[in-house]
């Protein structure tokens, strides 16, 4: 177990939808090793969103355990869980989801601000990561002044700047044209390779499935 970055054991999640119990995840046991570049795929309703929420600590399983970096996160709550997410998980959302009133630099530095990183170090690291994603000249722009591809680059920079153990990316290329999507995927692959960060994608994008070193398929709340 010590070598696994993520390990889930018989994770189940049951929702109540209008009084009717819905078993979204029906007992998933999965291990992901550090440095993996994996894709979680499956049709709509297969439970991949619910499973990702549980892995990332955004939701709690009805039963079963989730370990991240050896820590049992399925039992964490409140501040402890918030701090754990902040320090160990980076998120890339489908619609970029940058804070529109913050500049590119402020968006990227936000997590480090929560971590209490000194201002000078924050600035240096932000500029370094923006340089890596090719946006060093856009630091003082608002996200609304950027293209979709540029916004997603900022989101990637934000996810990576605090050097998390795991980056969860939900359909990161869904709102981008295929050329921009390919460029971003290539960039993430390179970062994975250079920095050894673990990427787990939730996707329908064939390009990501082809590039992923491992494809995990979900169907009806179970691994298939």
């Amino acid at each position: 177990m010590d070598n696994h970055l993520i390990k889930t054991e018989n994770v189940k999640k049951i929702y109540k939808d209008n009084g009717v119990e819905v078993e979204a995840v029906r007992g998933i046991s999965l291990s992901i090793m550090p440095g993996e570049f994996s894709a979680l795929v499956g049709p709509s309703g297969s439970g991949k969103t619910t499973f990702l929420n549980i892995i990332s600590g955004l939701d709690t399983p009805t039963s079963g355990d989730v370990w991240l970096d050896g820590k049992l996160i399925s039992q964490m709550k409140g501040k402890e869980l918030s701090d754990f997410r902040r320090d160990h998980i980076g998120f890339i959302f489908q619609s970029y989801n940058l804070i529109p009133v913050l500049t590119v630099e402020e968006n990227v530095e936000y997590i480090m601000l929560l971590q209490g990183v000194p201002k000078k170090e924050r600035h240096d690291r932000v500029m370094e990561i923006l340089s890596e994603v090719g946006l060093q000249d856009y630091a003082h722009r608002l996200p609304t002044k950027l293209s979709g591809g540029q916004q997603q680059r900022v989101a990637i920079a934000r996810a990576m700047v605090s050097k998390p153990d795991l980056i969860l990316a939900d359909e990161p290329t869904a709102n981008l044209d295929s050329k921009t999507g390919a460029e971003l995927l290539e960039m993430m692959k390179e970062l994975n390779h250079k920095k050894g960060m673990t990427f787990l994608f939730s996707t329908h994008d064939k390009m990501i499935m082809e590039q992923a070193r491992r494809v995990i398929t979900l169907k009806d709340g179970l691994l298939s």
Partner: peptide, 10 residues
């Protein structure tokens, strides 16, 4: 999103 990236409820 703010909560997801580690902002506490407070």
């Amino acid at each position: 999103v703010l909560r997801a990236v580690g902002t506490r409820p407070g």
